[in-house]
Amino acid sequence: MVQIEGLGRLLAEHPFFRDMPDDVREIVVGCCANAHYRPGEFLFKEGGPADHFYLIRQGEVAVEVHAPGRSEGVVVENIGEGEIIGWSWLVPPYRWTFDARAADQVRAITIDAACLRRKIEGNHELGYELYKRFIPVMGRRISESRLRIVELTTEPGE
């Protein structure tokens, strides 16, 4: 019970959930757990089941692409404190499309996706509140990725 209360407070403090109605956020708390990752530890790997998503409370997570012939992956983005990582749990077939690895000590709240999907099926308001928060994040990241393509093709240049 004490842990649930603590998670509820952590969830309410995280920017992603901060303005969610209390009664809706409380539904999510039951699917949450605290997690800690050491530097270099994987949160998830490409192709694996997207059964969680993560609210980063502290530290940085490197989003990586595994490249054949290279012993190490290529980091394409860092995701830090106050952000979320993982939206593949929303979209069938629920598989990760990148690797995510702790770049330093990472403290996060993990949210059980299967648990959440079940709850969303029975509570569409919860689904609406979550999608309202996920879609802007996804849109911003797509937009940033597009701009980085532009950046790579226009800078440096004549």
Binding site: G40, V75, E77, N78
Partner: peptide
Amino acid sequence: HSAHAGYRGRVGSV
């Protein structure tokens, strides 16, 4: 824009 795994700096946009 991209870096090797283990890079300690930032990866992303300006």
